[in-house]
């Protein structure tokens, strides 16, 4: 197949997978919440309520589109579109599998393996703040403005700790290329064994970056109505909610890739599987790891209460940031004394 054509196809597939995963995560979240609260959850649309996400999507599209009179019209529309766009952009650097060989042609399962993959991820995640900020500010509503301010200062605060926790990982791996980081974890231990503290910091920051409970202060319904999306309706609201699930899916994938071996799994070369069969099993294992993280995201949301704003800022700046610095310090010293330096 023509390489460009294959790239386009791969982009569409990856995009479709992230959308589909996000759609069914809404279903999964409602079912899980129901189980945790001793309820049934969505059960009317299709068997086990499995058609519920589709019904929700159609409903969103057919809802009335409201643009408040006092808002900045263009920015109001641009906000959710931009948020959705950036949420979809991160999936290009994730290695979804080792690649298939059909008719002697190699088909990669990572859209592109740029050598600054990690920086690209951090960069796109930072741009995500703009969608919320534009949307919240353009609404010209006090709740939206407060929600947007909270969201942006929370996201940028945790981004520092997130970047620092990744530096310790880069020190051990020596590369920013995600494909290479996964290949290094083949056979040996996963990176979480060498970077337990770094992983913990990254996990907490991932929760804060995706605005998930217990860090969902930007949309506290008890204080700010709906936070930055108070004034939104129809698919624009849908984009904000949907992009949050895509972000959650991608951050789960990133955590699985960086710290839990990506598509590698223990004893994968002793199973007697070869080539394509192994690649398919690897991708399924990767999806399983992602699902595990998504389950963790949801479990925590329905278990822990929300932080207070000062607690949130203190955790980010006064605990996680020094901890991340200490992690770099320890990693450097351990590597120095174990003679791993050139």
């Amino acid at each position: 197949m023509d390489p460009i054509l294959y790239t386009i196809l791969l982009c569409v597939i990856v995009f479709g997978i992230s959308l589909g995963a996000a759609a069914y995560m809404t279903w999964g979240e409602r079912k899980l919440a129901a189980v945790l609260q001793d309820r049934v959850g969505p059960s009317r649309a299709g068997p086990f309520g499995l058609l519920q996400p589709i019904a929700d999507g159609i409903k969103m599209i057919f809802k009335e589109e409201m643009i408040p009179t006092h808002s900045n019209r263009w920015l109001f529309v641009l906000g959710p579109c931009f948020f959705m766009l950036t949420a979809c952009m991160t999936s290009v650097v994730i290695p979804w599998g080792s690649g298939l060989t059909i008719n002697d042609t190699f088909y990669r399962m990572q859209v592109t393996d740029i050598n600054i993959g990690l920086l690209y991820l951090l960069g796109v995640v930072s741009i995500g703040v703009y969608g919320i900020m534009i949307g919240g500010w353009a609404s010209n509503n006090k709740y939206s403005l407060l929600g947007a301010l909270r969201a942006s200062s929370q996201m940028i605060s945790y981004e520092v700790a997130m970047g620092l926790s990744l530096i310790a990982l880069v020190m051990t791996t020596g590369t920013l290329q995600l494909g290479e980081i996964v290949r290094q974890q083949d056979g040996g231990f996963a990176n979480v064994v060498y970077q337990p503290l770094g992983f913990l910091i990254f996990l907490i920051c991932a929760f804060a970056e995706t605005n998930r409970a217990p860090f969902d202060l930007p949309e506290t319904e008890s204080e700010l109505v709906g936070g930055f999306h108070t004034e939104y309706s129809s698919m624009k609201l849908g984009f904000f909610l949907f992009a949050e699930y895509i972000n959650m899916f991608i951050s789960s994938a990133v955590m699985a890739t960086l710290y839990f071996g990506g598509y590698n799994f223990p004893f994968q070369h002793e199973l007697g599987l070869e080539g394509n069969a192994l690649a398919i099993v690897q991708s399924l294992v990767f999806m399983l790891k992602i699902s595990g993280f998504i389950f963790l995201f949801m479990w925590i949301r329905w278990t822990l209460p929300r932080f207070r704003y000062d607690q949130l800022m203190n955790l980010g700046w006064k605990i996680l940031l020094p901890l991340a610095l200490a992690n770099i310090f320890i990693t450097g010293l351990v590597m120095f004394f174990s003679g791993k330096l050139g």
């Binding site: 589109e65 959705m84 952009m89 740029i114």
Partner: peptide, 24 residues
């Protein structure tokens, strides 16, 4: 190596614009 990123942006942009026009 950066061309796929542009392609992905176009795919996502296409989806976003289509959905916005549809809902409108």
């Amino acid at each position: 190596e950066y061309v796929p990123i542009v392609i992905m942006a176009l795919v996502a942009l296409g989806f976003v614009v289509t959905t916005m026009i549809l809902t409108h």
